[in-house]
Design a protein around this nucleic acid. Structure first.
Lengths: 122, 122
DNA sequence: ATATGTGCAAACTCTTTGCATGGAG
DNA sequence: CTCCATGCAAAGAGTTTGCACATAT
């Protein structure tokens, strides 16, 4: 049986208002503004739990470790800023994208990552 | 001025006949069949050099660390087979792909990964 | 002869795990 | 009152770096 703690409520709140994929370090920083004693090990542990519960989804972008975002959201992709290293959502998607595979290949999903400088860093 | 050593010739040869992206560990194993004394630190160092020289390119696919492949090849993407876990090249690419970013974002490159079952596993 | 490249081991970074304490139920 | 969750610190895994020696030029 899962218990509801201050740390867990804080972490869920961080994701609810994040709007973009977060690294464990970012989750820690934002979470500590709500519960200052929050520790990194707790972040890693609960993030794994939430991913297993399909409440979070893993996002693997170059330039470091895994990031996490709310699962159950509309189809989207990501933009990775080379300057500030933050990830942003890209809500548009070319619809013919899964027809690019070689003959005989069955595509069931895809990931698209854009790189460059975000609006704030441009 | 760069020097040409047995280790470096061995590593370049490994990539010339690899035909797929390699992890540092794979480079080490294959390289040691040519130069047994080859060390992991040398692999990391030379791979970085070759990437800076644009002779190699980094490939980041989910499920582990960075892989490397020959750089000077036509623009392409990757298809990752969920069954055999092998990566294949995808040579087609939607041309309007970099126009999908939000306003004010400057895109300089992109990566596209298709997931599914390859022709052999389908 | 000179300075770059190499191998080793230590340092670093990121993530996971063991354990005693804290706190939800 | 029970256990699950937490925080800390140590342990792992992957990568980088400092140093003395080897070697390409």
């Amino acid at each position: 049986m899962q218990r509801d703690t201050r740390q867990r409520r804080a972490m869920r709140r961080v994701f609810m208002s994040a709007g973009r994929p977060l690294t464990p370090e970012e989750i820690l920083e934002h979470g500590q503004q709500i519960v200052p004693s929050l520790g990194l090990a707790t972040v890693y542990r609960y993030v794994k739990t939430l991913t297993a519960d399909a409440w979070l989804a893993e996002v693997e972008l170059p330039g470091g470790g895994v990031r996490y975002e709310l699962a159950e959201r509309p189809h989207h992709h990501h933009f990775l800023c080379r300057s500030c290293d933050q990830a942003f959502d890209v809500h548009r998607c070319p619809d013919e994208i899964e027809e690019l595979a070689p003959d005989g290949f069955q595509v069931d999903s895809h990931e698209l990552i854009l790189y460059g400088r975000c609006a704030a860093c441009a």
